[in-house]
Write a protein that binds this DNA or RNA. Structure first.
Lengths: 192, 192
DNA sequence: TTTCCCACTTGATGTAGATCAATTTATTTC
DNA sequence: GAAATAAATTGATCTACATCAAGTGGGAAA
């Protein structure tokens, strides 16, 4: 279970055995059943979380009770609420498991400790955040400029591996369209 | 002109005079006329840019020739295309001046040099990127979940100082709606 | 196997926002 | 300060997507 994370680290950075052991020693392993929350609205997020197995989502619920998914994560992706973590404020977001999942958690102080002691780790994390920033910026451009069909085609092209694992209604939510609309779009594409 | 940037630094981090001088020594000052490009689509972005005066925008142009604004920046904001910088690929974005502007530029190697030598500077930059990530995430949530009117009300509340300086049509573009629609929304709000 | 449930589809209709086109109101520019 | 240019408004119409409501199929429970 930790092994997946270790392989991820090895693929990204070169660490000494002591460094590996330091990281492992403060890691927390957690299993989640399908539908189980990792973070629930109103709670303060305290961790840095890495998914080693399964598929998760981050979403907000609006005043009408409608869920709006802002993020999907699978194996080898990080997930969390950086805003809640940074400001130590109650989260407006929910994170839960779409499938049975396994995650590796680090408390923020331990994570900071690792970053301060292992500069390649810190650099790796900063590179990830930097890339995530770009991903978000591209998604903003997509949402403000494209039609529902274009957004869907972009999505399945970019996240081909997600489309089979994630219910269609959740993909619709992520794209900011209704499930019925997505169904019709798929229908339209199929009959071309 | 550099003074605005120095004041910004002083407000954020404590630096020795040598450190201040190191930063200043590699800074590049640049003035931009209204409508002048800082970055043009197809070019590779090479800098880290800080606005000391004026107002700028970042936007993409789609295949129909329509501009989609993804970012506004004013005094004391950073601006650039991190994706182009990171990958050294031609940018899909344009950055230009909405008003006459002054910016402080650092080439990427110089910027990295500063980060490596002055850890508080590096930490400041990482904190800014981290916050920007959150801002973008909130904007994604807003665009996929809210009506045009709600988005506009959020915008003027969050960026009150922008609304007077930025043409309405550009705000509409930023929100992903048409200028006519924004005009009608404003009209509707006014007559309430 | 049957039942139940859930994800998805399909149809009919409604509506927010887009489009097209014509004015009016501001800003530049000379 | 007049002429030219650009920005914003307003009206009429259109359309992509939403909404509401039934129906279908397929997989888990019993």
């Amino acid at each position: 279970m930790y092994d997946t994370f270790q392989q991820y680290l090895d693929s990204k950075i070169a660490l000494t055995n002591d460094e590996k052991e330091l990281i492992r020693s403060v890691s927390i392993l957690k299993k989640l059943r399908k539908k189980q929350y990792l973070l629930q609205e109103g709670d303060v997020w305290k961790y840095h979380a890495f998914i080693t197995k399964g598929c998760m989502r981050t979403y907000a619920v609006d005043e009408k009770g409608i869920e709006h998914i802002i993020y999907f994560g699978i194996e080898n992706w990080w997930i969390g609420d950086r805003e809640s973590l940074l400001n130590q404020t109650p989260s407006r977001l929910n994170i839960d498991a779409i499938e049975d999942c396994e995650v590796v958690l680090f408390t923020d102080p331990n994570f900071e400790m690792i970053c301060s002691k292992i500069s390649v780790f810190r650099d790796m994390i900063h590179a990830i955040i930097s890339k995530s920033f770009n991903v978000n910026q591209n998604r903003i451009l997509s949402t403000i400029s494209k039609s529902a069909e274009e957004k869907y085609l972009d999505f399945i092209q970019k996240y081909a591996d997600f489309t089979t694992r994630i219910p269609q209604a959740m993909i619709a939510s992520y794209l900011g369209i209704k499930p019925e609309t997505l169904s019709r779009i798929r229908n339209g594409i199929a009959r071309k």
